[in-house]
C-alpha cells in the first residue's frame, strides 16, 4: 500500500463537520471532469491510489481511466463498498426484502423467494458474494489490490457478532478478485480483537485516527496502545478531524504513531493537497532521522 491514499469524500458531498460545506462541494463536483481534474492534481503530487466508495458516479471515472490506459498505467483504486446511503434509503422505503430484490442482480433473489425460506437459510454468503460482484462490476480492468468494506457494514456486523460474514468477505475478495480485504471501522480496537479471534491475522484496518480523538470509539489512548502493541496494517483517516484541527499538528501526530501504514485524506484544492502531502513527507523524514 502507498504511504498516502487519496480519498473521495469531497466529491460526494460528505463532510463530517459541516453540512453546508458538503452542499457546496456537491455543486463544485457536479461534473465528472471536475473530479478527474482533482485526481490529476493529486497524481501530480505523487498520489497514485484512489480509495473510493462504489458510488454510481465512480463508474464514469472508471470509464475514463480505462479509456486512457497510458495516463493511468500505475494507477490503483481501492474500492469501498457498499455505498450505504443507497441501501439505507431503500430499506426505509421498501424494507429489507424489497431492497435485496432491488439490488441483488439477476433473478437470483426472485427465485429465492419462490423457493421459500428453507432454501434461503443456506445461502446468505452467496447473496453477499453477488452483491460484491454487482459493486465490483464498474472496476473491471482496473487494478484493485485492496477491497474495503465500508464502516457502516463492518461495524454493524461487528456489533451483531456476525464475524462469519466478515471472514467470508475476507476470503471471497481474495478468491475472486485476487485482492486483499480491508475493513473500514469506527471501532478499530474492538474490530482487531474480534478479527484476530476469527483467525484473520495482521488485517488491513482503516479507521479515524486523529489528534482530536474524534470518532475513536473507546478513546484515543486505547487506539494508541493498540497501535503500539498489536499487529495490524492500520490506515489513518479523518486525520484532520474534518478540518477542526490545525493541519500541521494533526499530521505530525499521525506520522509519529507506530504501525500506521497509510494515511488517507481527501481535498479539493491544489493548495490543500500539496500542503498535506508535504507535511506527511516532512514528518516522515523527521521520524526516519530520529530513528537513525
Amino acid at each position: 500500500m502507498d504511504r498516502i491514499l487519496f480519498g473521495d469524500n469531497q466529491f460526494f458531498a460528505v463532510n463530517h463537520i459541516s453540512d453546508e460545506k458538503s452542499r457546496a462541494q456537491s455543486i463544485r463536483f457536479k461534473d465528472d471532469e471536475a473530479i478527474i481534474n482533482t485526481l490529476d492534481i493529486a497524481r501530480d503530487a505523487g498520489l497514485n491510489t484512489f480509495m473510493c466508495t462504489t458510488h454510481d458516479r465512480i463508474a464514469n471515472i472508471c470509464d475514463f481511466i480505462r479509456a486512457n490506459p497510458d495516463r493511468y498505467s500505475n494507477y490503483k483504486i481501492f474500492p469501498c463498498m457498499p455505498y450505504a446511503h443507497k441501501y439505507a434509503n431503500a430499506v426505509t422505503e421498501s424494507g429489507i426484502a424489497g431492497t435485496l430484490k432491488q439490488y441483488v442482480p439477476g433473478n437470483f433473489f426472485g427465485s429465492l423467494f419462490k423457493g421459500g425460506v428453507a432454501y434461503l437459510s443456506k445461502d446468505y454468503v452467496s447473496i453477499m458474494e453477488l452483491l460484491i460482484d454487482a459493486e465490483m462490476k464498474m472496476f473491471k480492468g482496473i487494478n484493485t489490490p485492496v477491497i474495503f468494506l465500508q464502516n457502516v457494514v463492518t461495524d454493524l456486523l461487528l456489533g451483531l457478532g456476525m464475524m462469519d460474514i466478515l471472514t467470508a468477505f475476507h476470503s471471497y475478495v481474495e478468491k475472486k478478485y485476487n485482492a486483499e480485504a480491508g475493513f473500514i471501522t469506527m471501532n478499530m480496537p474492538m474490530l482487531l480483537e474480534k478479527l484476530e479471534a476469527a483467525g484473520i491475522q495482521n488485517p488491513i484496518i482503516c479507521s479515524s485516527i486523529n489528534l482530536a480523538g474524534f470518532r475513536m470509539s473507546g478513546g484515543k489512548e486505547l487506539y494508541e496502545s493498540v497501535l503500539k502493541t498489536k499487529t495490524v496494517r492500520a490506515i489513518a483517516m479523518q486525520v484532520l478531524a474534518g478540518g477542526a484541527i490545525n493541519a500541521k499538528d494533526a499530521i505530525k501526530y499521525v506520522c509519529e504513531l507506530p504501525n500506521i501504514q497509510s494515511i488517507l485524506f481527501g481535498a479539493s484544492s491544489k493548495a490543500n493537497i500539496t500542503q498535506t502531502v508535504n507535511y506527511i513527507k516532512e514528518f516522515d523524514k523527521e521520524g526516519e532521522l530520529n530513528f537513525k
Partner: peptide
C-alpha cells in the same frame, strides 16, 4: 463551532 468539539464519546460507534 463544530461537532468535533461537542461529540459525546462512545464505546462503540455505528452511524
Amino acid at each position: 463551532k463544530y461537532i468535533t468539539d461537542f461529540a459525546i464519546p462512545v464505546n462503540y460507534y455505528l452511524r
